[in-house]
Design a protein around this nucleic acid. Structure first.
Lengths: 191, 191
DNA sequence: CGCGCGATTGAGTAATTTCAAATCTAGTGG
DNA sequence: CCACTAGATTTGAAATTACTCAATCGCGCG
């Protein structure tokens, strides 16, 4: 189906040709243009998405209409509104394409099916989720360890590629600072 | 071994008597007094901990010697320095007892063994981790949605029990505000 | 009764936000 | 090739928020 995806799986689990074919038969491929939504607040979330190419953002719109970015999703990343996906409740997040994207979609039902039928896939998803959990912990520490300046530097060194591809205003929203502050920081020493 | 623990498992997976006995044989029970450490920065992290009773905190000490609390762990919660545990690297966190605790300890080796041997346990941990992942996302949104006041209220309504049991200074450190600011907020309207 | 820890209060300071305006840049059509 | 526009980025200045440091308060415990 897709060599990028197969390699992604095989970083964690080994698969025979048949196993891979069977697994990939549970995914739907989809291409979307910039500015399209894959998840919209208030609507059901029936899929988890694997990014083959392109870039998306998952964000939350607060009462004052301010957008907070929970996650960027680029090549080889998984994304959805997990809360809504798992609990099968309406989305609280919006997920939309920052660039044209190519995605693999896995439905809630198919994910459960795959995990039940295949210990390997259950293991794969456990490992992926665990790594995601650790990343989120790191991000929380980074947010708690206040000082916008160092958060800025951390992001820059962690995702130099993203820094190029994403409008600064969105990075600001991911880091939890205003775009003006982010702009000022890029001049301060070390930026 | 422990009825609390069995119930905890059975919320997600069903177990026969034999299965449960087998699983629980992989855990070690341990009691610790207030102020003892279960994980210490710089040391290896060989166990994941399940809290039968009592209360712990997982925290990070920054360069300036300021403590940031990543997680509280009370009854029925799992805790360890996951980054260090999974990667089998030295701890970057400290985890210590806020109250006397009773724990079940699961070693790295035994966790891997259980997950490999038992699809059910792999499933259990995947579900647990996924729920943890969602909680961390919520916390990040709460941190991004700035405004210490509303973070305070969220914590209060989410964990009313913890609010009683934990010194306010630690809650402040969890919320990412100074103790003084937290104190002032408890008087402002809505506190 | 006094000690000590946690919580509160006050005052000044530093960091960040907000709002408004100015600049810059890439893409478009002539 | 140039002018033009929309969006992105930067800059300025005032206002706000939260922090720090220091002092005070309150209460449980020996």
């Amino acid at each position: 189906m897709n060599t990028v995806f197969r390699q992604h799986l095989e970083k964690i689990i080994e698969l025979t040709e048949e196993e891979y074919d069977y697994i990939s038969s549970h995914f739907i491929s989809k291409k979307l243009k910039k500015h399209n939504f894959v998840v919209q607040e208030g609507l059901p979330v029936n899929y988890e998405y694997f990014v083959i190419s392109g870039l998306l953002k998952a964000s939350f719109l607060n009462e004052q209409g301010k957008e907070h970015i929970l996650q960027f999703a680029m090549e080889n990343w998984w994304v959805t509104d997990y809360q809504a996906f798992i609990m099968q409740t309406p989305a609280t997040l919006n997920i939309d394409c920052i660039e044209d994207v190519e995605l693999l979609m896995l439905s809630f039902t198919n994910k459960r099916k795959l995990c039940t039928e295949s210990h390997k896939m259950e293991h794969f998803f456990r490992m992926k989720t665990t790594m995601g959990y650790v990343s989120l912990q790191q991000r929380i520490l980074s947010l708690l360890n206040s000082d916008a300046q160092s958060r800025y530097r951390q992001f820059f060194s962690l995702y130099p590629q993203l820094f190029q591809r994403i409008p600064k205003a969105l990075i600001a929203s991911y880091l939890g600072v205003s775009r003006e502050t982010l702009s000022r920081m890029s001049h301060a020493d070390g930026g």
